[in-house]
Amino acid sequence: MRTVIFKTIAPALTAIMVVFSVFVLLRGHNEPGGGFIGGLIAASAVAIYGIAVGVEEVRRAMRVDPISVAGFGVFIAAFAGLLSLGQSVPYLTGLWAYFEIGGSKITVSTPLVFDVGVYLAVVGTISAIALALEEDEEGK
């Protein structure tokens, strides 16, 4: 798969997909999208990059071990539920805060934090699996 065309396009494609995955993640707040879908898009970006330039290179570019990313995602997701402690509501209850910055209204909420956790967990797990399988291919 390491053709010149693919190798040239892959970095740009990966960058676009990662940005798009973040867009999908944030859009999931009120419309179709969300952490899970976004995470899958980002993980496929990682997989594509891995096919193009090799697993070793991807691991170096990611800096952090994918499994650690997944663990951090689970941690954040569980932590998002804890934020409603002391508000006389159950675990995982959504809390909302609104800010006005430069005339546009920004909404920050605990479901968003939870979604970021899901995003990281999915990115970490799926890219760990994808990289492991690609490594196996290369090993032969």
Binding site: G71, F72, F75, A78
Partner: peptide, 28 residues
């Protein structure tokens, strides 16, 4: 109705285990 903060002991065992497990995964 309001939920008493003390009721959280119901969910805490799972949360502690999950969060500690996730943290150990990060710091393994």
């Amino acid at each position: 109705t309001a939920t008493a903060a003390g009721d959280w002991i119901l969910i805490l065992p799972v949360i502690i285990a999950l969060m500690a497990g996730a943290l150990l995964l990060v710091l393994r």
